[in-house]
Design a protein around this nucleic acid. Structure first.
Length: 670
DNA sequence: TTAGGGTTAG
């Protein structure tokens, strides 16, 4: 650096010095301006200006100041440069002032304060200067100010530039005002020339999409004279967000040059739409195409692996992340995604290791870890982490509270949950949403306070959603309360008429108290609505990361006989320790013998037997299930963990159960 | 000036 300055100082060529200085300022953005002061003064000396006209000197000065502005990293530096701008008599130069305002806004200085003040001091603002302010309000709000400024600008007879419309669309998108957006759209056509501008088109697509008018966005796209990869990607992402992967895929196929962002939009689209296998397939195609990846790609793929819940996928993507530039310890996005993934793959210990290794943690990292602990029934750990978080600068958000409340719910910590719920808004500024009421309904309901839960639901300030009533219905089954179940189910059948799970919960609740007539009435209702029960389905991980799937009653596996024998043998040994089949887990009015037979074909039992046969002695057995584990299977898992001396981890659709030496981490409370 | 983003519940 010193050498370079010496060479530059010795140089007589002003343009050489100038361009080198600009390069230096841009590249060494962290170097304080003062350090480079000697260099900054150099080209401004009277001597070196000699061969240039006044106008040229002015232009050089302007571009010089702008390059210094670009190098600023703190507000103080900007203030210093601002003072310098005054000294040099450039405070009326729109070009320089525009750049100053832009930098101020980028540093989150409130637009209405410093930037707007600087703007007011310019006597004849040009369109760019007007626009940068419009853009500033479009970024920070109040967004109405963007529109107001635009009309002021027009009243003063200043014509817009294309950036003016981009800025306006940004503001309309931010307030989801499609009506205003289409008025601005009309202006772009009326004034002429702007509607065909690439930037304007792209921001217009973005605005329509944000306002939920995907078709309008598509129309703009179809009519654009010129498109770039950004136009395509905007629309692809919009389709993925709306769940239309078909249209997203069609567009993607037609995209002439696909860059990393476009590929990532597809990978993450599949991941967000619960198609994790497709996401991984696409990711591999992306890698085969030699496209680089970044933290956003990794986050999506990691989320897909989390959904699959299998250790082999987890280890595979962990290796990729570790060997990339975005290592979990150094990257808060990748780190947080990994915490979630390990929790969902049943390895909460590894999730916590990742959490501890992270140099920076944000609300995603904390919330993911809290939710992870909650999922595994580690409520005390979740709550401790929550209070640790409060000691940092990271503020809890609505997800963090869902995490702590569900942690309380999973272990029956009613008082702690009530306390947190009562202070979440007052002390932490998080306004309870329907999700939080669902957690409360779950917490109180599970713990047996069904009436109190019902009261909360009936008096909550917003309309209860499916999750809220669903929580109550689940609790009604646990506590065998068909009266509350009937009330909740009637709401659920309206809100979610096609959701089979609600009908089944109601049936099971009736069955639990022997009201078989009601059971058949609900079944008839289901048949009338053409609803079919989801078959129970379990997966078990065996050697080399192979995953075996079993449906309830499955007799298609080549090892079926061995599986059945192993299961019968296991149950016999369990009976010797006091186990009795739980007939209440079969919601059918059939004989006890038939109930026993049905119990033996539950998918998680088949998976367990297969796991025992096909994994090494002493290793952990990991099972995933699409539905909630039934009570009978739960007690079989408990017993099996003791007599086979195996740790068994079951992930059902609610949470994780860790069975160790005859005890489940859920404390039989799930 | 414009694109892709990780955590939530029955």
């Amino acid at each position: 650096m010193k050498k370079m300055i010496a060479v530059l100082k010795a140089s007589k060529d002003l343009f050489l010095v100038q361009s080198a200085a600009i390069l230096l300022y841009r590249r060494m953005s962290t170097i304080s301006i003062l350090k480079l002061d000697g260099l900054r003064k150099l080209p401004l000396s009277t001597q070196t200006f000699a061969p240039y006209s006044e106008l040229q000197k002015q232009k050089i000065l302007e571009s010089h100041i702008v390059s210094i502005l670009h190098g600023c990293t703190t507000l103080n530096q900007l203030k210093q440069v601002h003072a310098h701008i005054y000294c040099k008599g450039l405070d009326q130069c729109c070009y320089v002032v525009t750049k100053l305002i832009r930098m101020l806004i980028k540093m989150d200085v409130p637009v209405h304060w410093y930037p707007h003040l600087v703007f007011r001091q310019v006597k004849n603002p040009n369109p760019f200067l007007w626009t940068v302010l419009i853009w500033g309000y479009g970024v920070q709000g109040p967004f109405s100010e963007s529109v107001h400024l635009y009309s002021c600008m027009r009243k003063k007879g200043v014509g817009p530039v294309s950036f003016t419309f981009s800025a306006l669309f940004k503001a309309c998108g931010a307030v989801l005002d499609a009506c205003l957006g289409s008025q601005v759209h009309a202006q772009t056509i009326l004034i002429g020339g702007f509607a065909s501008d690439l930037y304007v088109g792209n921001t217009m697509i973005d605005m329509y999409v944000k306002c939920g008018l995907l078709d309008c966005g598509r129309k703009v796209f179809d009519e654009m004279a010129e498109r770039d990869v950004i136009s395509w990607t905007e629309l692809i992402a919009a389709y993925t967000r709306s769940g239309d992967m078909k249209s997203a895929g069609d567009l993607f196929d037609g995209l002439p040059i696909k860059d990393m962002v476009a590929w990532t939009a597809m990978v993450n689209g599949y991941s967000q739409n619960a198609m994790p296998k497709k996401a991984l397939e696409f990711f591999e195609r992306m890698q085969d195409a030699g496209i680089a990846i970044d933290e956003v790609t990794l986050a999506g793929v990691i989320s897909a692996c989390a959904q699959l819940g299998a250790s082999n996928h987890a280890n595979w993507i962990r290796d990729i992340a570790e060997s990339s530039r975005f290592r979990p310890a150094n990257n808060v996005v990748v780190g947080s995604a990994l915490i979630d993934m390990y929790s969902k793959c049943g390895n909460v210990e590894e999730a916590y290791k990742v959490f501890l290794s992270m140099k920076e943690r944000n609300v995603f990292s904390y919330s993911s870890m809290i939710v992870g602990f909650a999922m595994h029934g580690l409520a005390h750990e979740a709550i401790k982490l929550f209070f640790d978080m409060l000691k940092t600068e990271v503020k809890p958000n609505h997800v963090t509270f869902v995490g702590v409340l569900s942690a309380c719910s999973h272990v029956g910590m009613v008082d702690q949950g009530r306390q947190l719920f009562s202070v979440m808004e007052k002390c932490y500024g998080v306004v309870p949403t329907a999700d939080h009421y669902a957690c409360m309904a779950d917490l109180l309901g599970r713990a047996g306070y069904l009436e109190e839960a019902l009261k909360i639901v009936e008096t909550m300030p917003m309309k209860p959603n499916g999750a809220v009533w669903g929580a109550l219905l689940g609790a009604s089954l646990i506590h065998k309360n068909p009266d509350v179940a009937e009330i909740t189910a009637s709401h659920l059948f309206e809100l979610e008429p096609d959701s089979i799970g609600n009908y089944i919960l109601l049936c099971k609740t009736y069955a639990s108290v022997g009201r078989w007539d009601d059971v058949s009435r609900v079944r008839k209702l289901m048949r009338g609505r053409k609803l079919k029960k989801d078959p129970g389905c379990s997966w078990v991980e065996v050697k080399n990361g192979i995953i075996q799937e079993f449906l309830a009653g499955d007799a298609t596996h080549p090892q079926t006989r061995e599986i059945r024998e192993a299961l019968e043998d296991l149950v016999e040994r369990l009976k010797a320790t006091g186990y009795q089949p739980n007939m209440g887990s079969v919601p059918y009015d059939v004989s006890d013998e038939e109930k026993k037979r049905i119990l033996m074909t539950h998918s998680e039992k088949l998976a367990l037997a297969y796991g025992l046969l096909n994994t090494a002695a002493g290793s952990i057995i990991k099972i995933m299930k699409n539905l909630r584990i039934c009570e009978d299977c739960h007690s079989v898992m408990c017993g099996a963990s003791k007599i086979t001396e195996r740790k068994i981890v079951v992930r059902d659709n609610m949470r994780f159960h860790h069975f160790i030496e005859g005890v489940c981490s859920c404390g039989n409370f799930w």
